[in-house]
Write a protein that binds this DNA or RNA. Structure first.
Length: 124
RNA sequence: UCAGACGGCCGGACGGCCGCUGGUUCGCGAGCGAUCGCGGGCUGGAGGAAAGUCCGGGCUCCACGGGACUACGGUGCCGGCCAAUGGCCGGCGGGGGCGACCCCAGGGAAAGUGCCACAGAGAACAGACCGCCGCGGCAUGCCGCGGCAAGGGUGAAACGGUGGGGUAAGAGCCCACCGCGCUUCCGGCAACGGCGGCGGCACGGCAAACCCCACCGGGAGCAAGGCCGAAUAGGGGCGGACGGCGAGGCGCGGCAACGCGUUGUCGCAGGGGCGGUCCCGCCCUUCCGCCCGGGUUGGCCGCGCGAAGCCCGCAGCGAUGCGGGUUCCAGAGGAAUGGCCGUCCAUGCCCGGCAACGGGCAUGACAGAACCCGGCUUACAGGCCGUCUGACGCU
RNA sequence: UGGGGGAUAGUUUAACGGUAAAACUCCCGACUCUGACUCGGGCAUUCUUGGUUCGAAUCCAGGUCCCCCAG
């Protein structure tokens, strides 16, 4: 990150890890704050400072394996482009795919994510 | 040209920037080290069905000691191919189509049981409703007796079909052809086919009804299985205590037979377990203390050179086999292919134009590897190639 | 991964291989001044595609969806 010519991010938050355990997904769903947008649903759970973890999930109701994979990949890409530089720390964020996740214009999908982050209080 | 049949193939192309994941290599840092972390370079990265999980194998563990019985499941014309199959190829038989060609779970109904609604006289050891014929009676159209099963009618199906002879009317009663059954001979590895002879109709249909016959099938699955790895249970070792019978071992005594002591080493008995059952066989089977060791979660291996792909040649009608050359081609683990953009391609719509064409917009089938392989089945926008059939037109 | 079961009117359930039945709901009509009750009538691609059979909701095979069990 140091030698890169990219514009330096204004604040550096914690490096994003991955939520992999079913237990963690359920905890975020039960106790986290929730925000729905046309392109995705966000569940945000405050954890100890210094950690930032992302989870992506799509239920079988959305479609077959191709559709679900595409929805998850687009959410990952949206998170990759939108999150760095925001100085996030101390959160478990779960992004849930919906029917529209696969075909919504990508700019609007990023907008959905930003809006959901504000609604859940992750961003001011 | 139109309509159609069959076989094979493709499954958008090229490029830029930012990312993901495997391999490899270089640099820096940490560590005695295996190695780990960060950064960079190079490079690989979904399918014809990756799908459904319907068959068959490889691989791994268990049972691998057999056998019998019964049960269960599957397959079902013949021959061949394959590692194997319920797959494929080639035949045979049956059915459909003018044809190319397509479809068929296609063994057994004279082993047995069962079913065949409604209609119809009668539905499976046949039977006579309307009828037909003869004789008799009389009120010429009915009745009685007898013969018949061709015609009508019912039905999905009516106990051979068509034609002729024959007869009172009829009937395989007789004859020819067809069908059916049995059979000599011939062809074929066989299924089966052909010629001839005989029989004279006896043998309805349904086994994707029960069933019979023949053949096949050990169980489980990569969450298999292995290695590294903390507590409990279980396991192993050592020590001690208890013991239904017998054998053996050890110690002591004795020349020896033997006696005494000790011992969970073996067998029997009792209890329990191992497959659906039985026989046989195998395994386990008291308590206390100490020590060793030690599930799951996590990490690593299994984990991709294979019945492999491609290109030729030979053998074969073909499935396929053999030989030569060449290539290395995904390995994740909440699970890698995404985002943005450009050019082209295909399709549709709109605008301009007589047209060639130009411009704009939209769309890009079905679908994502999870141990691997061979088949089957199912889904699929659009397109390409080849062979063949029918009809029409022209020469 | 392995195994088992199911799909019938809007709903819940029936139906030896022979006309798809019942209850409730809904719709129409009658009765009533009106409503309820009651009475009469109506409402089916038997999940789907093929096959066997004279005939299939039923038997067989392929497909779709749902449920259950074991790990």
């Amino acid at each position: 990150m140091s030698g890169s010519a990219d514009p330096a991010p204004p604040q550096t938050g914690a490096p994003a890890g991955r939520i992999k355990k079913r237990r963690d997904f359920l905890r975020a769903a039960q106790r986290g704050k929730r925000a729905a947008r046309p392109g995705l649903v966000l569940q945000a759970l405050a954890t100890e400072p210094g950690s930032l973890r992302l989870g992506f999930t799509v239920t079988k109701k959305v479609g077959n394996a191709v559709v679900r994979n595409r929805a998850r990949r687009r959410m990952k890409e949206a998170a990759r482009l939108a999150l760095p530089g925001l100085g996030l720390s101390g959160w478990d964020l779960v992004l849930i795919g919906r029917d529209a996740t696969g075909k919504r214009p990508f700019g609007q999908l990023i907008g959905d994510l930003r809006g959901a982050l504000k609604q859940t209080g992750v961003l001011p």
